[in-house]
Design a protein around this nucleic acid. Sequence first.
DNA 1: CTATTTGCAAACGCTTTGCCTGATT
DNA 2: AATCAGGCAAAGCGTTTGCAAATAG
Lengths: 127, 127
Amino acid sequence: MDKTRMTKQRKTIINILKDTDTHPTAEWIYDQVKKEIPKISLGTVYRNLNLLAEKDQITVINYANEQSHYDGNTKNHYHFKCKNCKRIYDLDLDLFSKDLNKIANQNTNFKVSDHRLEFYGLCPICK
Amino acid sequence: MDKTRMTKQRKTIINILKDTDTHPTAEWIYDQVKKEIPKISLGTVYRNLNLLAEKDQITVINYANEQSHYDGNTKNHYHFKCKNCKRIYDLDLDLFSKDLNKIANQNTNFKVSDHRLEFYGLCPICK
DNA sequence: CTATTTGCAAACGCTTTGCCTGATT
DNA sequence: AATCAGGCAAAGCGTTTGCAAATAG
């Protein structure tokens, strides 16, 4: 059973997130919640965001707390990250590369020039 | 003209990056360079990595230095980031979603269960 | 009641930066 | 010789955490 409690802090954070499509930062959410709960702390916002992400009720875009990784290979290629050992592998599927941009351009009104595609799962060693 | 100088620190960092496909962190690179240049500082490694990335000689995988962004929409969807205004938009192209995993599975020996795809370019407001 | 959550503030970890010295062109 | 780059250490910044007080169930 789930021992989590629905505090007014948590409820407010969830509502704010469900009501926007601006993909906000913790700081922005914090500012919004403060309008309703002036004494809320930023730590509480982070704790709740992490909890919600763990329960897959929200998604984290660009997890900022990892180290940066660098790639000396500038040829266009994709990456695969093993969920188990965290290793990053190169993937040779540039077949789509141009197609993906084209499809995105044709189906939206953005001027798409680039994309980043990353796969996740288990590598040969871990599976 | 390019006023950058080819120091032995810079040269060593480039060589190390070109010689590996492990997508290392700054710290790992630092440890490698130290074997040749024991007095090199971590700051120098970072300065060079940033410089090389700016000149597109290397790629940064997951820029750790940005803030995290959160998405309350758990429906499978892609994102578009405007290079100019930095706004993040939703994109409705889940058409491929399953296909991309399938293709990756068929063409590699990884067990692919997931992926993240992000497009870049100019949004309607900025273009 | 009592275990979970909060507020607060301090700590953390990665990255950046200021200052001065050293090296490259 | 002039200016770019490096070393060192401190600062920056987003995020996490320890602790005591508050509160949901």
